[in-house]
């Protein structure tokens, strides 16, 4: 079941450094929301606060509220481990576990969390997740081979399969195609459009065409200035942001008139 996410006046810090300031944004469920903006403007940082991965870095913390279907994931007593099971993540570089086979990688989220599973259930989850990630046909004959032996694009789809195997409500993708060739990129983009039927998806991308192709909503982030925290400039439907943005900075960035 997919869920909506709402950020309310979120400030994000690395130690004493304020990286992102005052972000308020609603991410609709069963839609793809794209975060765009120049490097270092805090898109990835915002993404990582949505499943509490930001605080993995020593000294990093968040102020403000992030609501998952109205429930604050930064509220007292909330276990970040449970948040991350509900809100999955795919990273920029494909990172399958090198000691595990393809099937073990898919099951990693379930197995490592300590859940027991019958062999037939496990096989069902592997097939379902790999089919979900459009990888089943390519790897079904070598499920016991190491995951690191796949191509970069296949590895990334394996990581997506691994993320959806734990059945999250929201899927965060941090530049999932930036290390991939155009054909693999297309495969992932098609996959994102399929996954949105079942998941709420947030994707960070540097590729404007990609944002245009896959997203329903786009949020543009920018730095207020050198050394200033990043902030959300504007957000809206992707067609609005690309055809008639309200802010000059957004138009400059999208049309390429930007440093």
């Amino acid at each position: 079941m997919s869920k909506s996410v709402e950020l309310q006046d979120v400030d994000i810090y690395y130690g004493t450094f304020k990286a992102v300031e005052g972000v308020s944004l609603t991410v609709a469920k069963n839609a793809v929301t794209a975060f765009i903006g120049p490097s270092g403007c805090g898109k990835s940082t915002v993404l990582r606060t949505i499943n509490r991965m930001h605080e993995v870095i020593p000294g990093a913390y968040v102020k403000g509220k992030v609501l998952l279907n109205g429930e604050d994931i930064y509220g007292t007593g909330v276990d970040p481990v449970n948040v991350r099971r509900t809100i999955g993540m795919v990273f920029q570089r494909p990172n399958p576990f090198p000691t595990m086979s393809i099937a073990e990688n898919v099951l990693a989220g379930v197995r490592l969390a300590g859940e027991r599973m019958s062999k037939s259930d496990a096989e069902a989850v592997v097939e379902e997740s790999l089919r979900g990630a459009n990888l089943w046909e390519e790897v079904k004959d070598r499920l016991d081979r190491p995951g690191s032996g796949l191509s970069g694009g296949q590895q990334q789809r394996l990581c997506i399969a691994r993320a959806i195997a734990v059945k999250p409500d929201v899927l965060l993708m941090d530049e999932p195609c930036s290390a991939l060739d155009p054909i693999s990129t297309l495969a992932i983009e098609d996959l994102i459009r399929e996954l949105v039927e079942d998941y709420t998806i947030v994707i960070v991308t540097h590729n404007m065409q990609q944002a245009g192709r896959v997203s329903d909503t786009t949020a543009f982030f920018n730095l207020a200035g050198v050394g200033q925290p990043g902030r959300l400039v504007e957000s809206g439907t992707t067609s609005d942001i690309f055809s008639h943005p309200k802010e000059q900075a957004t138009e400059d960035y999208i049309s390429g008139r930007f440093g």
């Binding site: 499943n51 991965m53 099971r85 990273f91 576990f97 090198p98 989220g109 490592l112 969390a113 734990v166």
Partner: peptide
Amino acid sequence: PNDLREASYALGVPKFRTILKVVLPT
């Protein structure tokens, strides 16, 4: 690689199990 730890955390795996099942075997 720290990537592997993060990948494990992002799957909702607790830290000590991440160390036991991902970091140590690697």
